[in-house]
Computed example of a mutant assay.
Amino acid sequence: MQPVNVYTYISRELISIAIEAVFSSQKGYEFAGVYEGRSKRLGNINNVVDHVVTDIVVTDIGLEESNVESPLLVMKRQWLGLRCLYLLPSQSDDSLILRALRSGADGFIYESASKSVLLQAMKTIASGHSFLQPDITPIVLTELRKSRYPIQESDVSVDLTERERMLLQLSADGLSNQQISDVLHVHEKTVRNMWSMLFQKLGVGDRTQAVLWAIRTGNAELR
């Protein structure tokens, strides 16, 4: 399987250098340079190999101006198959986070996130899914809850165990897998396995979608 090419498009040089340092030596990744704008490349339609996206840009640019088109959307039009991980400032207000969600990015983490969170985000995005750092989840769910999502017949037919409901509620509270494992007194690997089985049961691809489903159907609440 070919490595994931990582590009940076970051306003702060020190953060860009740190990202480069991580992925220059990380197995399965190749630091490919600074994004400078590219026209649609011939053959890029084959960027997905075994459902793995091969081009990801890590960026923190373009959300200060809310009245202009997101540079991320422009990048995606120019570069077929490109995926984007957005680095949010550690002191982001809710409006900036919500603009990030609408920007076209595929994942969101705080710039202060640990290396393990960064790698988890990149792995998730490369596999074709979206990623949302757990700390951001409550803000997102509050906004999504304002929209009226109709409950489908298939939603109410799903039978959850008490442990699955607890898993969804703890995630809605913003807890990470490690924190959930501490609460449930199980190994973190067990929590990950629980998520995998729950994703299959609900027909969703990630924990954000799962928690949104739980909020919509009354299986979890924002507290």
Rank of each mutant, 00 (worst) to 15 (best):
L144E: 03
L144Y: 02
L144K: 01
R145V: 01
R145A: 03
S147M: 08
S147H: 05
S147N: 11
S147W: 01
R148L: 09
Y149Q: 08
E153K: 07
E153Y: 00
V156S: 12
V156Y: 08
S157L: 09
L160G: 14
L160F: 15
T161P: 14
T161F: 03
E162L: 10
R163N: 10
E164G: 05
E164D: 03
M166L: 15
L167S: 02
L170W: 04
L170Y: 12
L170H: 08
L170N: 08
S171C: 13
S171P: 06
G174W: 13
L175V: 05
N177S: 14
N177D: 12
N177C: 07
Q178K: 15
Q178L: 13
Q178S: 14
Q179S: 13
Q179T: 14
I180D: 07
I180V: 12
S181L: 01
D182I: 02
V183C: 04
V183Y: 09
H185G: 11
H185Y: 13
V186H: 04
V186C: 09
V186E: 12
E188Y: 09
K189D: 15
K189A: 05
T190G: 09
V191Q: 02
R192G: 07
N193V: 07
N193F: 08
M194Y: 11
M194S: 11
W195F: 13
M197F: 13
L198A: 12
L198P: 04
F199G: 10
F199N: 14
F199E: 08
F199S: 12
V204Q: 05
V204W: 08
